[in-house]
Nucleic acid binder design. Structure first.
Lengths: 240, 240
DNA sequence: CCCTTCTATGAATCGTGCT
DNA sequence: CAGCACGATTCATAGAAGG
């Protein structure tokens, strides 16, 4: 039996084909549709939007689905999370990355889809974040997490911290918004050992790499051919 | 001229008596009306609610205004923040403490009152929070911050970090939900030196103590006689 | 030509991690 | 070991496109 499976295609379409009540945990980093006060800012290609002017050419391939406005982001997230709810085991955990701007919307979508909202996990990106004189840095990203129904006791697992301090790892990134594997290993531990984690927005597959290193099975979905291929290579290595 | 002023009474009533466009920053920690998934949980006295069963007798006096449900909390916060908006200078900053559960509601109220939402500051309470096997701790509290209109440049101020790590008990507490002065000193720096900070829910006055230590003027409002008196004593010391 | 909408460009901030 | 590039940015402005 293979320890990881990947699907290439639209998250909503592929989710619909997955079996009900199968996954112990869903851990994912959807497109934020954030970045900028104005609609025109949000509609830029991701390579422009998340890159400082005057920077050297952005080495990452663009990714789609990052330009919805507030209402349609909520609508679409609710659709995706409703399918996600179906495929999650009772008592299973869901964890969704988001930035400060979309945090309220993500918590709404999570609850609209039927999950119980349980908390907010914090990723402290350290002082590498952009500074501004007289104002606070945007130094953290957030993980909105919850459960399908009541929380089962998990006496075999350790108590998990609610915050990770971890700088954005520039060297080891394969995607513009890629997360450090160290961070993902902290989060993947909500899944019991030997259980299966699903990531419907796999990107370059850091969630899966963390699963491989910690003895969890992994299923992932990715839309772009490019990142799907990158992820398969990294997963093959992590699960060998 | 006195460097600090306190008012005893209801926040909404006292705010209505303050002059328009007077304050450089509003920094406050309103009653969260959180604490519990169920209505019956929220209706307990604060001394019970925020104390673990079996703990020694809670030494803090109860405080009111902590038992609103979701809709009325939003309505009431919007009323308070609308008055707050009036008394804030153009380009002034607002910073509101909240827990994860009320963060979306607080950001709604802040925007409904007319402020521009600018970000989320994180207070890492460290591992003092209660652990749970297999789940994340609630390790952080949050500060939703924003501005009245566009952000003026503040070249005279340093760039501020977006996160403070600071244990709850550091430096002694005078109120059940009292904040460490060290934390408040990090936040008070959004106000230019010599400027004036308002705290409509002063509690035991930690915001004001931080202002005293960092050369900002301070005005505070507190409902209960007991905490108003505690705050006055601490302020007299900090501003001498 | 007026008005709205979209696109492109440029400046600024500082600790960290890579070269 | 000393520099240097960089950040899921923010804000302002100028010009092009379209009706």
């Amino acid at each position: 039996m293979t320890e990881f499976v990947t699907y290439q295609g639209d998250a909503l379409a592929r989710l619909a084909e997955l079996p009900s009540e199968h996954y112990d945990a869903v851990i994912t980093d959807p497109p934020y549709s954030s970045g900028g006060t104005f609609r025109s800012d949000r509609q830029q290609a991701t390579g422009q939007k998340y890159t400082q002017t005057g920077e050297k050419k952005n080495p990452f391939s663009d990714f789609p689905g990052d330009n919805r406005d507030g209402r349609s982001f909520l609508y679409w997230m609710t659709l995706v999370l409703s399918e996600t709810y179906r495929v999650t085991k009772n008592g299973g955990t869901i964890a969704l990355f988001t930035d400060w701007r979309q945090l309220p919307t993500v918590s709404d979508a999570l609850q609209a889809a039927g999950f119980v909202w349980r908390g907010v996990y914090v990723w402290d990106k350290t002082l590498a974040a952009r500074p501004r004189k007289g104002y606070f840095r945007q130094q953290a990203e957030f993980v909105v997490w919850g459960s399908k129904g009541p929380l089962p006791a998990k006496p075999e697992l350790p108590a998990l911290p609610g915050l990770t301090t971890c700088s954005v790892n520039k060297g080891g990134r394969f995607h513009q918004t890629g997360k450090p594997v160290e961070l993902m290993k902290a989060i993947v531990q909500v899944c019991p050992e030997g259980g299966t984690v699903l990531d419907p927005f796999m990107g370059s597959g850091s969630t899966g790499v963390a699963c491989g290193e910690l003895g969890r099975k992994f299923h992932g979905i990715e839309y772009t051919d490019h990142y799907h291929e990158v992820a398969r290579e990294r997963l093959a290595q992590a699960f060998q």
